[in-house]
Amino acid sequence: MIAATTKKESRTAARFRLSWRSLVPFWLLLPSLIFLAVLQLYPVIYSLYISLHRLRAGQYMPVGFRNFERLFADTNFYEGLAVSFRFVGISLVLTIGIGMLVAVLLNQRSQFNALYMVLMFVPWVVSDVVAGTIWRWLFQQDYGIIQNMIQPLTGSTSLYAKPDGALLIVILATVWRGLPFTSLLFLGALQNVSTEVIESAALDGANRWKTFFRVTLPIIRPTLIVAVILTTIAGLNSVGVILTLTGNIPATQTVSVYLYEQGWQFGDFGLGAAISVVMFFINLGLTLVYLRFQRQD
C-alpha cells in the first residue's frame, strides 16, 4: 500500500518535473518577452495606428492617410530627408573608412596598443549631447579654439555660420564619437583572420594592399556589415548632437530633428507618427539592402 502510494507520487513528480522542464525555456524567456512585447512591438503597432489619426491639442480622430498626404506635400520633409542622407552617408563613409584604418594599425600590435585603446575610447563614453556641447565650443564663432586655428581658411564667416559648415561640424562630432567602437569591432574581426590565409596570399605574390582588399576584407565582411547597419541606424536616429550643436536650423534639420519639432514643439503627434512610420520603413529597407550584401558570395 505504502509502496504503491510512493510509486504513484513519484510518477506524478516525474511527470510534473518533465512538463516543468519542457517549459523551462519558456519561463526563462518570459520576462524578456513581456518587456519586448509591451514596450517594443506594441509601440510600433500603436505608432502605425496613431499615424492614421489626427492627434493634436486634445483632438483625436481617425483621418485615414491624411497625415501621410500632408507629410508628402511638405517640402521640409524632403529637405530633411536630403539632409539626413547627406549626414548619414558622409559620417558612414568616414566612420567605416577611418575605423578600418585604425583597426589595421592596431592590428600591427604595437607595444603601446593598450594605452592607445584606452585613450581612443574616451569619445565613446561621451554623450551625444555633451559631444555636441563641446564641439560647439571648439567651433564657436568668435572664441572657439579650432575656429581660431582655421580662421585663415574660413575667412570672415566662421565655419559654424556657413550652411554646409554647420553640417560638417555635426558630422565631425558624430564620427569622433562613433570611431572607437567601430575600430574595436574591426580589430576583433581582423584578429580572427588566420595568419595562414594572409601568408599564403603573400606567397602567391600579392602585395599588402592586394592581400587586404582581396583576402582580408571579404573574410571580415559580416562584421563590416554589422558596423554599417549599427552606424546607419545611430545616424538616422541622431538628435542630441544636432540639437546641442546647431539648435534647429534648416542646414542641419534631419528627418529625426523634423520629427522632434513636429511632435514636441508643434504638438502635431499624428504627423509625427506618420514620420516615424516612414522612418521605420527607411531603416528596414536599408537593413535589408545591407543584409543582401552579406548573403551573396
Binding site: P43, G263, S276
Partner: peptide, 27 residues
C-alpha cells in the same frame, strides 16, 4: 521557434527609437 524568436529579437535592434517615441509618450 527558437531560431525564429532569436531573429525577431535581433530584428528589434533595427527598430529606430524614433519610431516608438510618440507611442511611448502616449502610453
Amino acid at each position: 521557434g527558437n531560431k525564429l524568436l532569436q531573429l525577431v529579437i535581433l530584428g528589434m535592434i533595427m527598430i529606430p527609437t524614433l519610431t516608438n517615441l510618440i507611442a511611448l509618450y502616449r502610453l
